[in-house]
């Protein structure tokens, strides 16, 4: 099958793209697939995130992540952070953006075991035994 974009090279890649909540699968040659990937935003939410970040001017300490060096400009353009530390480095911007994207800004789901153990200690310290029992059950699960 010929590449459906350039109509010159043999297609090698089936590219899936999402637009308006539909997925398209297009057969492309390698060069065209790379171009198409660079142009697309992976999902509606990623696009929304990029839109929100693009209206924002980074604060003086928000220009780059001290751990991995990712710049605010790159975060805004790619919609991707570079490492776990980026969430602290760009806290204000992400706080605003995530609240609007998710409609929430606080995680209420599971935590890794080490974190659950810390929460258990906290619950015991403040004598919240109901929470402590729940956390203990969670740690006991196989």
């Amino acid at each position: 099958m010929l590449c459906s974009r350039c109509q010159r090279n043999e297609s090698e890649v089936l590219l899936k793209q999402i637009a308006e909540n539909y997925v398209s699968q297009t057969a492309l040659c390698r060069a065209c697939a790379e171009k198409a990937l660079a142009e697309q935003h992976e999902s509606v939410l990623t696009g929304l995130l990029a839109d929100i970040l693009s209206t924002r001017r980074p604060g003086p300490r928000e220009r780059a992540c001290p751990a991995c060096g990712l710049t605010f400009a790159r975060l805004r353009d790619s919609g991707r952070v570079g490492c776990a530390e980026c969430y602290s480095a760009f806290r204000e911007a992400l706080d605003d953006a995530l609240r609007r994207v998710h409609g929430a800004s606080k995680h209420t789901g599971l935590a890794p075991a080490a974190e659950t153990r810390r929460q258990l200690d906290d619950a015991i310290a403040r004598e919240d035994f109901e929470a402590a029992a729940r956390l203990r059950d969670r740690l006991r699960e196989p």
Binding site: L49, Y87, H107, E115
Partner: peptide, 12 residues
């Protein structure tokens, strides 16, 4: 992170 939960490449 206590606030954000599991941290992912794409914040969405």
């Amino acid at each position: 992170d206590r606030r954000w939960g599991y941290l992912t490449s794409c914040p969405t």
